Computed example of a mutant assay.
Amino acid sequence: MVESGPKAHLHRYLHTGRDALLWKLAGLPEYDVRRPMTPTGTNLLGLVKHLAYVEMGYFGPTFGRPVAEVEPWLADDAEPNGDMWATAEESREEILALYRRAWAVTDATIGELPLEAEGSVSWWHPDRRAVTLHQVLVHVIAETHRHAGHADIVRELIDGAAGLRDGNDNLPEVDRVWWSGYRDRLETAARAAAREPAGG
C-alpha cells in the first residue's frame, strides 16, 4: 500500500530528485563522472557526495540524531568545497554507498518524526536556526532538485545526454538536425537582441 499524506508526498519528491541525480551518472566512465565541467569545478560525483553530507547533516544532528560521518564537514576547519569532489582514492562505489547511507539517516528521521518536530540547524544564522522537519524536508528537496539540474547540464556537456529521468526525458521527439537548427535559431536571436538598444 502506498503511503499518503503531506509527509509521504514530500518524501516522494525527495526520492524523485535522488533518482534523477543518480541517473545522470549511469553509463559514464570514471573520468567523466569526476571531471570538472565549470569554472567552479562542478562535477557529477561531487554533486552526489555533497548531497550525501547535506542529507546526513540536515536529518541527523539538526534533530539531535548524531551521525559520525558528517561531523568533519561541520567543523570550522573543514576544507572549502571538500564535499564537492571525490579524491582519486575515493571510488564511485564508496560515494554511492555514502549517499545511500545518507538516505537511511533521512528516511529514518522522516519516518520517526512528525512534520512539526523541532530541530536546530547549527550552521545557519542564530536568528534562523530553529526549524521544523517540514521546513528541512522542503529545503533539502529544493537543494536536491537544484543539484539534479546541475547534473543534467553537466551530463549534457559531457556526452549530449539530456532529459528528466529514465523512460521520460520530457524532451520533444526530434532528431539531432532539429536540435542543431533550434540552437542556431537561439544563437541568431541572442545576437540580434545584443545589437538592439535597451528597451527597443
Rank of each mutant, 00 (worst) to 15 (best):
V2L: 14
V2T: 10
E3V: 00
S4F: 12
G5I: 05
K7T: 13
A8D: 14
L10E: 03
L10I: 14
R12Q: 13
Y13I: 01
L14G: 07
L14R: 09
L14E: 06
L21K: 00
L21N: 02
L25Q: 00
L25H: 02
A26C: 09
E30G: 14
E30N: 11
Y31Q: 09
R35V: 15
R35D: 07
R35H: 10
P36S: 07
T38L: 07
T40Q: 13
T40G: 05
G41R: 13
G41H: 11
L44W: 01
L45I: 02
G46I: 00
V48P: 01
K49D: 00
A52D: 05
Y53H: 08
V54Q: 06
V54P: 04
E55S: 04
E55M: 03
E55V: 03
Y58H: 13
Y58N: 08
F59V: 01
T62A: 15
F63P: 06
G64K: 05
R65E: 07
R65W: 06
E69W: 10
D76N: 04
D76W: 02
D77C: 01
A78V: 09
N81V: 14
N81G: 13
N81M: 14
G82N: 10
D83T: 13
W85M: 12
E90P: 05
E90S: 06
R92I: 00
E94A: 15
I95P: 01
A97Q: 06
A97R: 08
A97N: 07
L98E: 03
Y99C: 06
R101L: 05
A104F: 11
A104L: 12
T106H: 15
A108P: 05
E112L: 13
E116S: 15
A117P: 08
A117Q: 04
E118G: 08
G119S: 11
G119F: 04
S120R: 14
V121T: 08
W124V: 03
H125V: 11
P126D: 05
D127I: 02
R129F: 06
L133Q: 12
V138L: 15
V140L: 00
A142Y: 14
T144F: 01
H145I: 09
H145C: 12
H150K: 01
H150M: 02
A151Y: 06
V154T: 09
R155E: 03
L157T: 03
G160V: 00
A162E: 06
G163V: 13
L164N: 13
R165E: 10
N170G: 12
L171P: 03
E173Y: 06
R176I: 04
W178T: 03
W179Q: 07
S180D: 08
Y182C: 12
Y182R: 15
R183A: 08
D184G: 07
R185S: 15
A189Q: 10
A192T: 12
R195S: 10
P197W: 14
G199I: 00
G200L: 09
